[in-house]
Simulated scan of single mutants.
Amino acid sequence: MSQLLFFDSGVGGLSVWQEVHHSLPQWQAIYAMDDAAFPYGELTESVLVARVLAVFEEIAARHPIALAVVACNTASTLVLPELRARFDFPIVGVVPAIKPAALQTRSGKIGLLATPGTVNRPYTRQLEADFAKDKTVLRLGSSELVIMAEAKLRGEPVDMARLEGVLAPWLNGHGPDTVILGCTHFPLLKEELAQVLGNGVILVDSGQAIARRVASLLPQATGNKKGGLSHLYHTAEDPKGLALLRRWLQPGAVPEFLPLHSSS
């Protein structure tokens, strides 16, 4: 039976999978992470696109896919057109939640917290022009938060002083009142981000919107009787975070190494 595919460079896509699983618990899912190239925000565009396509080719050759979610903002802003041209199943991307943030801000000042690649992409600038042209959008790019989120999931304490250092440009009393979590890793730090930014700051991510979009694209009353993660693929030979992901794997499912046949 066809399954859902969730893809990210690391474990951050779990924040999206959990939202979808909550809405569609009957669907089995495959989680694939290109952790050998983590974090994606540090890659050149050509390398990133080549790696995502290679992972999708490998997974699609092994499993029938009903729908795929690119649960990575950095990848989604680049690779969706090429994926949709190559595969015949629906592919949903995760992009910064600029539209809902523009609707929620009280001061008209929005903060976009994402990876360096995402904050500077033309795709992101177009979202701003389409949905927040009458707002002030403050951009803050950080790959450091991605690493901190993965460390938190491994059970390591969050270094709050380090987090404050990353967010320092917005802690001067003139920061945004609404902050977009423009990377799927960042909701994993939501509690700590709220503590540093202050309780009055609204944090917005794309998880629920993605879950609604996925549900709208799937056939009604279909899916597996028992959902969950049936397969977990990783590209790093010495992967981190597998212990975290194993807790969501179905009984008997074993993480599998996915070698990429890509010159990149």
Rank of each mutant, 00 (worst) to 15 (best):
V137E: 03
D35I: 12
Q250V: 08
Q126H: 13
L171F: 11
L113P: 07
A194C: 09
M160D: 11
P157M: 07
S142M: 03
E237Q: 15
E192F: 10
K226G: 05
V16A: 02
F87A: 01
V52Q: 01
G117K: 13
A209Y: 09
T235G: 04
E237L: 12
A151C: 03
D88Q: 12
S23E: 11
V94L: 14
V196W: 11
D205P: 03
I147W: 12
A129N: 12
E19L: 08
G207E: 09
E150H: 05
N199D: 14
A114I: 03
P25L: 11
G165V: 12
D35G: 06
P239T: 10
I202M: 13
T184D: 03
L43S: 07
V79A: 01
A97Q: 07
E150T: 07
P90C: 07
L43K: 14
I98Y: 07
A97W: 11
L188M: 09
G155R: 06
H231E: 15
R106A: 15
Q126S: 11
T118L: 10
L188R: 01
R139K: 13
S107R: 13
Y40T: 04
A68W: 09
Y40D: 08
A50R: 08
T44L: 12
D88S: 15
V20M: 07
W248G: 01
V11C: 07
A243K: 11
I30G: 00
F257S: 09
P251T: 01
A29R: 00
A61R: 15
K135C: 15
V137D: 00
P100N: 06
W17I: 02
F131K: 00
F38T: 02
E58Y: 01
M33K: 06
L188G: 01
W170I: 03
T105M: 04
F7Y: 12
R212Y: 13
R246T: 14
R212T: 11
A236I: 10
P116V: 08
P176V: 08
T105K: 04
E144A: 15
V20T: 02
L197D: 09
S76Q: 00
K133E: 14
L53R: 06
D8Q: 06
V137W: 09
F6P: 00
V119A: 00
G12F: 10
V201E: 10
S23W: 06
A60C: 10
Q104L: 15
